[in-house]
């Protein structure tokens, strides 16, 4: 049974904010299905009491001193912005008018 359907891909792409064409959806569904079927073997490798590792070298509570240091100027921070206005990042409308 297929794990990844074209409908799944469409939904996942929208969650990931990537526009996909119908053609891409078909292709991705096939490719991802093969990959997921293969990587699913991890489910059988572990048990409930196997501890999980998120970080290879254990470290905890890494803090830095809370001191003020020079940082980017407003102009520097905006230097790569696709669009700007009044010293701020300018974005398109957040709410749909329709």
């Amino acid at each position: 049974m297929s794990e990844i359907t074209p409908e799944n891909v469409r939904h996942l792409a929208s969650l990931a904010r990537i526009l996909v064409t119908d053609e891409e959806v078909e292709k991705l569904a096939k490719e991802l299905d093969v990959i997921v079927e293969s990587v699913a073997m991890v489910k059988g490798a572990v048990s409930d009491d196997t501890p999980a590792t998120s970080h290879p070298i254990p470290m905890s509570n890494v803090y830095r001193e809370d001191v003020v240091k020079p940082s980017l100027s407003q102009q520097q921070a905006l230097s790569n912005a696709p669009d700007q206005a009044d010293g701020k990042f300018k974005v398109n409308a957040i709410l749909d008018e329709e």
């Binding site: 699913a40 991890v42 490798a45 196997t50 501890p51 999980a52 590792t53």
Partner: peptide
């Protein structure tokens, strides 16, 4: 998936 993969990392 992600949870099991992290456990494999321990193994």
């Amino acid at each position: 998936y992600y949870g099991s993969a992290q456990k494999v990392r321990t193994l």
